[in-house]
Write a protein that binds this DNA or RNA. Structure first.
Length: 277
DNA sequence: ATACAGGTCTTAA
DNA sequence: TTAAGACCTGTA
């Protein structure tokens, strides 16, 4: 990684490959063996990892201003990991597999769209859908390498589309969910800044009013767009894990306040690890 | 081929 | 209140 500014830090419980691959961010991708790129809030960043040494393609100021929070670096994930029940072999294994995961601070509106698209869909296509939306409706920028990249469009850019117009971006039947949600925001039916101030349950209830947002998608938005770590999205993978390993229910009480972090370890294990066994 | 992907909405008992 | 069915589209 050369050409622009760089800032290196030593970080525990951070694995950029796992973060990229765990299905919470659809705008991160691998560039080469140790380097990943991500687009967030209009910014472009590359991250290179060698062991605990992480190099960011930005200056210290931008790092402190934005990326430190984005990657949730002020939070001690070791604390969550150590809270895991040592007798819970399944969870211990899942955590070992994904111990470098972090819950990113992503943009609320972008998460609303991303997880509306995610329903009954696969990750490869979700990424493609979002890329299509950004290329067609987002802003064109140039990174420090001179390459083009596209920012995520504001709600206003999508609010005036016909309900099926986003099918051209390959959204399928989800097109109207995104179009109507954009409209709800622009017309003031839902106030994103107000939602940002709400506690988890209240924010979830507000999101559930949106067309196309059910319980699972609302929880994903809460977890990834609002950083409510108590949100515990129940999807097919988690349901499978519950049936196999937690017939009496997941011990949420033990992990009160950070259930969502545990959910991510289980989800990532079911998504990428379990089939390797 | 047919089922399934980080579900939700609609309709009918 | 619950339970089928429909829904875009690509991949295995």
């Amino acid at each position: 990684m050369q050409g622009g500014q760089m800032f290196t830090k030593t970080i525990d419980n951070f694995d950029i490959a796992q973060i990229c691959d765990c299905g919470q961010c659809f705008r991160m991708s691998q560039r080469d063996e140790h380097t990943y790129s991500v687009i967030a809030s209009g910014k472009y960043l590359e991250v290179e990892q060698n062991g605990k040494e992480i190099t960011f393609s930005c200056g210290e100021e931008e790092f402190e201003e934005f990326w430190k929070r984005y990657f949730d670096l002020d939070r001690d994930y070791k604390k969550y990991i150590e809270a895991a029940d040592p007798n819970d072999r399944y969870l211990m294994n899942a955590i070992r597999f994904g111990s470098g995961i972090r819950i990113l601070y992503q943009d609320l509106w972008e998460m609303m769209v991303s997880f509306l698209i995610s329903q009954q869909n696969n990750i490869v296509r979700i990424r493609r859908c979002i890329q299509n939306i950004c290329e067609r409706y987002g802003g064109e920028r140039v990174n420090f390498r001179g390459e083009k990249y596209y920012t995520f469009p504001e709600p206003e850019k999508l609010a005036f589309l016909a309900e099926d117009e986003l099918k051209e971006c390959n959204l399928g039947y989800r097109s109207k969910y995104v179009a109507r949600t954009a409209r709800s925001i622009v017309e003031g039916e839902i106030d994103l800044n107000a939602v940002r101030q709400m506690p988890y349950e209240e924010a979830k209830a507000e999101l559930l009013k949106l067309y196309g947002v059910g319980v699972k998608v609302a929880d994903c938005i809460c977890l990834f767009g609002l950083h409510h770590l108590e949100a515990f999205p129940m999807d097919t993978h988690i349901l499978q894990a519950m049936e196999k390993h937690y017939k009496r229910g997941f011990p949420k009480r033990r992990y009160r306040g950070f259930e969502g972090v545990m959910q991510q370890y289980v989800f990532y294990w079911e998504l990428r690890g379990a089939r390797l066994e």
